[in-house]
């Protein structure tokens, strides 16, 4: 099973230190890890550093990976104006680093990724013609079609309506379990983090200030300290932890 551990990981843009010596316990495949923190905490930078797009001190330790490229990364959404259909854009994500010849199994994987995320009907649409939320699901399909063992998702729900947020996170959690895939997902909705993730790590000003099981990490004290809001966490009628935000402080 694949595992991921960060050991004193740091990153800088020019002279500015963005991440300072981030060390985590070992995260295992099959788990969903929430990456939390306010704006500009360094979440995207951490993803880029783990994915290898940024150099810096420390080490990203991946063990037990079966493939050469075990990590896929879905960056935050940006608009596109390419003249490509959704189907082609997902196929292209799968074919990177491969020959120009598309095999039937490649098409089957594209079908599967689109199907899993419920966006098969979008296949023939132009990527520039779909909504921001749909584009985000297509981005998720582009990451999934690479068959990663570790999947890094940078705010995959930011443009989705409530229904699609819940459905995407449910699908991701199921896929993590089924494929023993480790998913690390940056989220702003702590309620979603409580409900859909197993572990959480919290960044603030480029430093890791909490890491552990989500239920233990997401507490009223943390919310006060990091997000500067007064909040309670209470079980709902079904026993699930419910986040109730009262006011900003």
């Amino acid at each position: 099973m694949v595992t991921l551990q960060l050991d004193r990981l740091s990153a800088r843009y020019g002279r500015r230190q963005i991440l300072a010596e981030i060390s985590t316990p070992r995260f295992e495949g099959g788990r969903v890890v929430a990456l939390l923190g306010p704006n500009a905490a360094g979440k995207s930078t951490l993803f880029r550093r783990i994915f290898g797009l940024l150099k810096g001190g420390g080490e990203v330790r991946i063990t037990g990976a079966a493939s050469e490229r075990p990590v896929a990364y879905m960056p935050q959404d940006t608009g596109v104006n390419a003249v490509l259909t959704v189907y082609e854009s997902v196929l292209m994500a799968r074919m990177q680093g491969r020959s120009l010849k598309v095999r039937p199994e490649d098409l089957a994987k594209v079908d599967q990724a689109l199907d899993e995320l419920g966006i098969s009907p979008l296949g023939a649409r132009d990527i520039g013609d779909i909504s921001g939320g749909q584009r985000q699901l297509v981005s998720a399909a582009q990451a999934l079609v690479q068959e990663p063992e570790i999947l890094l998702l940078d705010e995959p729900t930011s443009a989705l309506d409530l229904n699609r947020q819940i459905s995407l996170l449910t699908i991701l959690r199921r896929l993590a379990r089924e494929r023993e895939m480790l998913i690390m997902v940056a989220l702003h909705d702590l309620g979603h983090a409580l409900r859909f993730t197993d572990e959480a790590m919290v960044l603030q000003n480029g430093q890791l200030i909490a890491c552990g099981s989500t239920a233990e990490v997401v507490t009223p004290e943390l919310l006060h300290r990091v997000y500067r809001v007064a909040a309670r966490i209470e079980p709902c009628s079904k026993g699930r932890p419910q986040l109730i935000v009262e006011e900003s402080v």
Binding site: L53, R69, A72, V80, Q96
Partner: peptide, 11 residues
Amino acid sequence: RLGDTKAESMG
């Protein structure tokens, strides 16, 4: 054509 960030994320 999907932008540098997206291209980078695809390797």
